[in-house]
Computed example of a mutant assay.
Amino acid sequence: MPNETSNEYILLGIGNSLLDLFVYNSEEVEKLIEKYELLPKPIDKDFNKINEFLNEVSKYPDTLKVPGGTAQNSLRGAQRLLPPNSTVIIGCIGKDEFGKTLKRVLNNDGVKTEYMEVDNYPTGISSFNKLTNNKYFVRNNKGAATRYNLENLKSPSKWKFVENAKYIYVCGFILKENFHIVKEIYKHTSENNKVYATNLSSVKSVKKYKHRIDEISPYWDIIFGNESEALTFAEMSNWNTTDILEVTKKLAQLPKYSNNFVRIAVITRDARSTIYADQNGTIKEYPVIPIAENDLIDVTGAGDAFVGGFLSQFIQGKSADECIMAGHKLSNYIIRQVGTQYDSYDSFVQNNSVNYS
């Protein structure tokens, strides 16, 4: 464990610990979809069918297994741009091969894993199945990811990482099952002069859990989101505007519990731009790094990569311009491959002719 003056494990992530499956055996997948009657979208009672489908596609020899989950993706990206031993992730996995895969890959990426492991739930998985029409059929079972509990978090072996971290990034997707953990963390950051960062997670989450987001928002130090999520938040808040610059500014200037830090709001707009605003009224729009159409492979995890790049510079005291550029670099790299993989990032930056200026 680092001492009081150490910057080891300075960035802590908390979120759903998932493994992403990318499946490209289109004809076989479509047969399975028909076999398990998964189209149109299955209702809740078809959950067993979804699990059987996921189990089968996971066994295909050409299935690519890549860590997923917002917080995990972001911390893996951040660690690429930080000194060794800067990041640690907390979550829950099953005692199975998928869980072993997550630990191995995250540790290889330099992220310390502090998972709770359970016997009676499998490691959570999401499958991205490319069909013959080039569209994705996505199904998931969060499994053990939903079973994380406050008792484990507060245990001495885990809580010491919470106490040590100076920046904590909490995935907004855990608002459903683990809101009690979210509350414990935002109170801790506020009371201990730490930075609390989170995301809006999805349009669905904003619509369904707006009341919980409103409870958390006074504790935000950094809020990330994409344009659709931000506009949904604005609509549900009755802001009567669809001007994304104005919406980002309003997000940054929502009432804030603590004055320890100036709040920042960062909203990504896919291939168009990223908007940065702070509580003091600063607002700026940044163009993204262009990419040729034939270089664009898969956008899965691009937003998570952006967050990782941004946080890597923010915790080093860099300017907003430098934080945004780091985020753009990582996301530009991620969309050139399948899934959120960082293995070749350093060599890509050194050898590729992409203009990062």
Rank of each mutant, 00 (worst) to 15 (best):
M325W: 07
D304S: 01
K329D: 13
L330C: 06
I315T: 13
I334C: 14
G317A: 10
Q313E: 15
I315G: 02
K318W: 03
Q316E: 15
G317T: 03
D304K: 00
G317E: 03
A302R: 00
G327A: 02
K318S: 06
M325T: 08
T300P: 04
D304Q: 01
F306I: 05
I334Y: 04
C323T: 03
C323H: 09
Y333L: 12
Q313G: 11
K329A: 08
V307R: 11
F306C: 07
Q316T: 06
F314T: 08
V307L: 02
G327D: 05
G308T: 09
E322C: 04
A320F: 11
G327Y: 04
G301C: 11
A305S: 15
I334M: 10
M325E: 05
Q316I: 00
V307A: 06
D304W: 01
L311I: 15
A305F: 07
G327C: 06
K329M: 14
G303M: 05
G327I: 00
T300Y: 09
F306A: 10
K318P: 01
V299P: 11
G308V: 07
S331A: 15
K329Y: 12
G303V: 04
D321A: 04
S319N: 05
A320T: 10
G303C: 11
M325F: 13
Y333R: 08
D321N: 13
G327W: 03
D321P: 04
